[in-house]
Design a protein around this nucleic acid. Structure first.
Length: 228
DNA sequence: TGCCAGGCCGGGT
DNA sequence: ACCCGGCATGGC
């Protein structure tokens, strides 16, 4: 059956020649191992993923440092903290009331499903974990995939604003292509290798920060100049 | 000084 | 199914 085209929702057309693995190799040659995600434990990575929503990482670092100083980087401590207390600690990361509630929502589900055992929580299968995370208020697709990939070591590609912008500026996708379309675009041409997934997303953030900001594009020395 | 940062939700059309 | 306002700090 050629049951493909009729029900497909208006989806952006993309050059089917896109080779994400080639992109990976080019960027790896330039950057080497990415060292991502910044964060020492799976819990710290997950917390950072929430705190960095629409926020510069330098601000997140301050917030995480404060959590550590107050011995609050802990499932039960966050879970039982007063919302205002938690908010005051993560203040530098912005949206602190919102993110305080979101962190507590995440800890709540870890408590409910695994009695606060982070390792057990992250040892679920990808699809199970991903849907559990997506059901948490305050965790959307990018945050869920970031946690799955970097905190739980699952093979799922993280799509963010930089990924979209870089692809669209190079004519490889529409800027407003929906999340799943872009994710499939990458996963279709990547080997199922966790390091490749982790590093490629990291490289796209590096390129985005250095050469592909919203304004002030300095594309001259961009490693992707002329791509493809 | 204003714009931007590794989003997401809820309400409106 | 989109579109939009709100959420907030710190850096350039």
């Amino acid at each position: 059956m050629s049951s493909r085209e009729k029900t497909s929702p208006a989806r952006s057309s993309v050059p089917d020649s896109f080779d994400a693995f080639l992109l990976f190799r080019v960027l790896r040659d330039r950057y080497g191992p990415s060292g991502w995600w910044p964060g020492e434990t799976p819990l710290e990575i997950a917390v950072g993923a929430v705190l960095t929503q629409n926020t510069a990482w330098t601000n997140v670092e301050k917030a995480i440092a404060l959590l550590k100083e107050h011995s609050m980087l802990d499932v039960r401590r966050i879970h039982s903290a007063r919302p205002e207390t938690l908010a005051s600690l993560i203040r530098p990361s912005g949206y602190y009331n919102l993110k305080s509630a979101r962190l507590k929502n995440l800890m709540q589900v870890i408590m409910e499903l695994c009695a606060g055992d982070v390792e057990a929580f992250f040892s679920r299968g990808l699809h199970d974990l991903r849907s559990v995370l997506l059901a948490v208020n305050g965790i959307g697709k990018e945050t869920a995939d970031s946690i799955c990939c970097y905190a739980a070591d699952k093979i799922t590609f993280v799509v963010d604003a930089y990924t979209r912008r870089i692809l669209s500026r190079h004519g490889m996708a529409e800027e407003q292509a929906d999340y799943e379309t872009v994710r499939q675009l990458f996963e279709a041409s990547l080997p199922r290798d966790l390091t490749v997934y982790k590093d490629l997303h990291a490289y796209l953030v590096f390129v985005g920060k250095d050469f592909c900001r919203k304004s002030g594009p300095r594309c001259e020395s961009c490693p992707l100049k002329g791509w493809p």
